[in-house]
Design a protein around this nucleic acid. Structure first.
Lengths: 194, 194
DNA sequence: TGCTATTGCTAACGAACGTTAGGTTGTATA
DNA sequence: TATACAACCTAACGTTCGTTAGCAATAGCA
């Protein structure tokens, strides 16, 4: 077995991801998913343990993706805070564009995780955001960045980036890297022409 | 009657707003709301027609707030695209900070509206965003702004602004107007010191 | 051929859901 | 004092929810 394109479990997760994105986790029933797959609701339990397990897999898989991209972009890199921020932004966009549906679920459905997964998730989130804060902190200390609140700036930047999943199309004329670079440029230099 | 601080219907809506923000519309039950108010679920129907009516009221009230703020900021105003954008941003932040909980619901729970309200809502949203697009279009035509995609820039800007509801505290040291102004500054001039 | 997964089914469980019907109480006004 | 209404109750409705039990069909491998 396993000469298949996609294991059935992956298929279930992919369908669930799409439905969670469209309707939200709480508003998507097991029967909805089953119907989308052309099977009965009870049959889903041959592949998954519970509804929440699906959400956990989506959320934590995306989390790993974000960390991997961030690590790759920053580990061992030395440069100005601007350069670091730029690389972190490009990495972030790259992770989002690797799976926009899962990203959408990751960003807005994680609150439906139950303990202890919820706490673990929040911890990872804080750690990930912490890297951005450190970069901002560094840039503020070196006088590279304008005076601003570290935390609010970090949240605002991420919020701007996190909308990318809504409109990114892999078939579009810009690659993830190009989009990330443009966003980094605008964040660093602003809309206004100099 | 009506020497009261808040009509019971408003109390129900306020409680619902808070719960919708925390758990999401679909994951909040009538019994949850009732419990938060110290009454029985069935008693809620003395004050409201349905669960969805509450969501409708929250969403459309916030929509009116956004339009009112935008109109006040721009109607009759003539100036550069930068100035217009700045005013629109400040107005937007002002509307958000007038009710951060309702804003949170407005931004992420509107998809649970049923027709025809859903279509009406989307129409208003497009109209509101259209104003931002026009400003960007103007600034691009006049050479005031750097070259960028109108639609994506608009979505990115609004996405950055729309996170404000997450951290704004009326008791904080910055007013809504100050925050809006700072955000407009960063969007126009960027993070990097010149 | 026999064994073991994989994938699916029907039937049903108890719980929770939004909502309705019908009734009781208290208070403000005519 | 009579009337009206707001506010809340208990009881229950039909539906949907996530999930379990138990069983059948199929396919790959030994």
């Amino acid at each position: 077995m396993n000469g298949r394109v996609l294991s059935k479990k992956k298929q279930v997760e992919q369908t669930a991801t799409s439905l969670f994105q469209q309707r939200g986790y709480a508003a998507t029933s097991m029967r909805d998913m089953a119907q989308a797959l052309g099977i009965e609701a009870a049959s889903l339990y041959s592949h998954i343990r519970s509804k929440e397990e699906i959400l956990q897999n989506i959320c934590f898989r995306m989390a790993r993706l974000f960390f991997a991209a961030q690590d790759e972009a920053l580990s061992g890199f030395t440069g100005t805070a601007s350069e670091k921020l730029s690389r972190a932004i490009v990495a972030h966009i790259k992770a989002i564009t690797e799976d926009t549906s899962a990203s959408a679920v990751f960003f807005s459905e994680w609150r439906h995780l139950s303990e202890p997964h919820l706490s673990e998730f929040k911890e990872m989130q804080a750690r990930y955001e912490g890297t951005f804060r450190e970069i901002l902190h560094e840039g503020l200390g070196s006088g590279e960045f304008v005076d601003l609140d570290e935390k609010f700036a970090m949240l605002t930047i991420l919020s701007a980036l996190n909308w990318t999943h809504q409109w990114f199309k892999p078939s579009g004329r810009m690659s993830a890297e190009e989009i990330g670079q443009r966003l980094a440029d605008v964040i660093l230099n602003g809309l206004r022409k100099k």
